[in-house]
Amino acid sequence: MIVRNCMKKRVFFIHVDETVAGAAKLMQEYHIGTLPVVDDNNKLIGILTLHSLLRIVLPDFIEFVANFSFINNLGAFETRIPSEAELDIHIKEIMEEPIFVQQDWSLVHAAAILHNEELNDIPVVDSSRRLVGLASHVDLGTAIIRSWNL
């Protein structure tokens, strides 16, 4: 079986010229955590996760201090919301390099990439790298388990 057979074909994606505010609205409205980023030709050029959006309101120290069990609340950061300027940031500035699979790759191949990269969802593209779907680890994993003849 190949990825195309188990991926979600109705995919929410975002154009590269959009801002953080636009991405946040989409994620909130449709309850999604991964947005593939595309250009004018629907070509996959990046990936935006909820984690990247939340990073805007999280403190910087989490990058340096592994153990912060000596604090009970984050003080000034507990109620922090993004500023106008932060909401206007173009997503191309915070998106990550896309990790993707081809629609005709095997499920195990795709599952191995997901496992290795510690991802929950992975965009699926055609041979021209145009976005055609999205596969979650549940989509791929349950499809693989189905072949176990339980």
Binding site: P59, D60, V65, I71, N73, A76
Partner: peptide, 16 residues
């Protein structure tokens, strides 16, 4: 000490 300084400044809302 610098990383903990960043933590303390951030939770207090200070410029580091």
């Amino acid at each position: 000490i610098a990383p903990v300084t960043i933590l303390i400044c951030e939770i207090l809302g200070y410029n580091t």
